[in-house]
Design a binder for these strands. Structure first.
Lengths: 242, 242
DNA sequence: CGCTTAATTGAAATGGTTCAATGCCTGTGG
DNA sequence: CCACAGGCATTGAACCATTTCAATTAAGCG
């Protein structure tokens, strides 16, 4: 499982707080374990389209994505749902680290997912001892808040086209920042379905289809077979209003 | 200015982190000042409808509302704007305490406002020394994130009526929790204009008028002269879907 | 291979915006 | 204390972005 020669178990480990802090057992194996590895944890995996956790399951544990795409969403009375955020490899699902959520949210595996689960009480304890770890968790929390700021403005004040364009551009940005995709790539793996895009932008999947097929006709981008082709990134940025 | 006999300078002080932690000079006057009062600060006030800060002004300072209503909003290309949150008395405007925001937001005085400004570097320093203060700031941050969760779901998946009803109910809830209004009051001071409500719910002020006048016709609530009358709270909750 | 889930397309319905006109508050200066 | 100006609220009519409904095809999945 671990690769001691390269020093990284997975591509995203470089960007994972648990790995950087040497809390993760993928790094501090066997004999090192008693140093910082004292944080209880386990590796798990789950198939695409399965629910990983309900809100209440997260009282005791803190998960980190090792591989695959994850969403956190809220069910709405009447069958609808809204995706609050996407989690990419190396990211902590730490919303409930300090307090419970007001909404009953679900963490779901979009693709097949590998993840690591840490014991919440131990993580908290460690965090308050180690300033570095605290800073890191805070940074992740603030980063998420900034994404929320942007999402709120988009939902409240921008058209469907703008919202879809921005969602895609931001995800591509995050993938490239984590070196999950080459930074010059114009073709990349993109596992979201139309209903994911709709649920993340406050649109219907039907309308997402219409927006995307317009983009395709204008040779801006093409999305199909879990693959995104950025045919004209400049035009996409223009649509996004950037 | 201070009232040493009651122990509180203002009604909201009881709920203000700076006051609770005895950082605020409204509490640690004169001789006490060297204990925890070492945090540089100053009291200020500003007239309604004025901009208190731009994003970049908050690099050095951390404001806390003592009195009045405050909003943080983002300007949108094309003249629109979106309100991200409202700040009530006793609340820290601490979004930028750890990192800069990605959007250029404005903090604006809705009513006449009194507030206190702390030096950011000193606050941060103190926060990392004192676990209690850290917990308190984190709690505020998480509370704000929970509000964001709810707002995102509302914007993405609920109608205008629901959004307006929820905004009002949540604000009333917060006012009562802080004892800024009596918990059994059905008439309370509510300084938001239609355009504030629109900018906070992603609607036009014109449409807010229509929604509110429908509520009035149905004897659910009446809003006018800076005063909110909750004529039928149960019905309002029903509209909100609660 | 058959079954379920997802994408696509068009037509009709709708919720909210935009535009425009009118009147009302509120604060300000004379 | 009154007059005036600018911001704010209200209303109706026309418009348009997005949803809803429905029917068909295509794509994953066991």
């Amino acid at each position: 499982m671990e690769d001691r020669t390269s020093g990284l178990a997975r591509p995203a480990c470089r960007y994972c707080p648990a790995y950087q802090l040497a809390i993760c057992h993928a790094r501090t194996v066997a004999s090192d374990a008693r140093v910082r590895g004292g944080v209880e944890q386990s590796v798990r995996s789950i198939a695409a389209r399965r629910t990983m956790f309900r809100e209440r399951d997260l009282h005791d544990i803190v998960p980190i994505v090792c591989n695959g795409w994850v969403s956190r969403d809220v069910g709405v009375s009447g069958g609808g749902r809204m995706i609050l955020s996407f989690y990419l490899p190396g990211q902590l699902i730490g919303d409930t680290l300090f307090a419970e959520s007001a909404v009953d949210s679900f963490v779901e595996a979009i693709t097949d997912v590998e993840y690591r689960v840490f014991k919440r009480s131990t993580v908290r304890e460690f965090m308050f001892i180690c300033d570095e770890s605290l800073e890191m968790v805070l940074r992740g929390l603030i980063e998420e808040m900034r994404r929320y700021d942007q999402l709120i403005v988009d939902l409240g004040r921008h058209s469907a086209e703008v919202r879809v364009a921005r969602l895609i551009l931001r995800l591509v940005e995050r993938l490239k920042a984590r070196e999950l995709e080459k930074s010059d790539a114009h073709r990349l793996r993109f596992p979201l379905r139309h209903h994911h895009i709709g649920d993340a932008t406050g649109l219907t999947s039907v309308h997402v289809t219409k927006v995307l097929s317009k983009f395709r006709h204008e040779h801006v981008l093409a999305l199909g077979s879990r693959t995104l082709s950025l045919l004209d990134p400049a035009a996409l940025n223009r649509i996004a209003g950037w």
